[in-house]
């Protein structure tokens, strides 16, 4: 569904992403794990057009994403939940969700999506009139995911959904990711919490200073000694 080949991204002189290739098949959860600064977020940003890679290719379904204007990527069914949530703080919860459906011209589907978001995140419904800047970190994360769901995407790019959340909330968010996947959503998940991410994934890629050093079946990666030592705390 998504195929990234020989991707290279530079920040000025710094070669941040070195020749990365990865693939996500329809219906999968694939995680991209690695330490802080390994290039996980950069990879996602290059896929969704927030950054311009220097070379390589990003193919999503039949679309070449590197030649697609960034604001049109979501129209093809690929939604990105960015790192740090990036909700519109001065807008209400409901307005944020409306922005998620900005590209949609189908009012009825919007309504259905809204119900679906509220079913997954009842807390958002209670607070729909509230400015989203006043939400807690966990609620903002829910809103960021809900906002992406409003575009009826087929695939989600999730960047560090567990960042800064309490263990209980992390559990809740991961449960929702699994539910979304069971409903047919393909997911590329970027996480520092490698153990948690791999435990819900089909496959995984391990990123280290801009390079993919390991990849494979998520269950096998969880058992891999090098991975255990580096990312899973022994």
């Amino acid at each position: 569904m998504l195929r990234v080949e020989n991707l290279n991204v530079y920040y000025g002189m710094i070669h941040a992403i070195k020749d990365i290739s990865l693939e996500v098949k329809k219906g999968e959860i694939v995680s991209l794990v690695g330490a802080n600064g390994a290039g996980k977020t950069t990879t996602l940003q290059a896929i969704s057009g927030m950054l311009k890679p220097r070379s390589g290719s990003v193919q999503y379904l039949e679309h070449n994403l590197l030649t697609t204007p960034p604001h049109q990527i979501v129209k093809h069914g690929l939604a990105h939940v960015p790192e740090g949530r990036r909700v519109f703080a001065q807008m209400t919860v409901l307005e944020n969700l409306e922005m998620g459906a900005y590209i949609s011209k189908d009012k009825e589907r919007d309504k259905k999506n809204l119900d679906r978001v509220f079913a997954h995140f009842p807390r958002l419904e209670e607070r729909k009139k509230q400015l989203s800047g006043t939400l807690s970190g966990g609620e903002q994360q829910m809103l960021a995911i809900g906002r992406a769901m409003m575009a009826s995407p087929d695939m989600l790019l999730l960047d560090e959904p567990s960042m800064g959340l309490s263990p209980l909330l992390v559990k809740e968010i991961f449960k929702i990711i699994q539910e979304l996947n069971q409903d047919g959503m393909t997911i590329l998940l970027v996480e520092q919490n490698a153990k948690k991410a791999l435990s819900i994934s089909d496959r995984g890629y391990v990123l280290e200073t801009g390079k993919i050093v390991l990849s494979g079946n998520a269950a096998e990666l969880l058992e891999n000694d090098a991975v255990k030592k580096a990312y899973l705390g022994g």
């Binding site: 960034p70 960015p82 807008m91 900005y102």
Partner: peptide
């Protein structure tokens, strides 16, 4: 209005607005 709201979204966060499909 939808367009007015999209302007507010752009004024808050251009990249996030772009991810929503708004042409900045």
């Amino acid at each position: 209005t939808r367009v007015g709201k999209s302007m507010r979204a752009v004024s808050e966060d251009k990249s996030a607005a772009q991810l929503m499909g708004i042409n900045v």
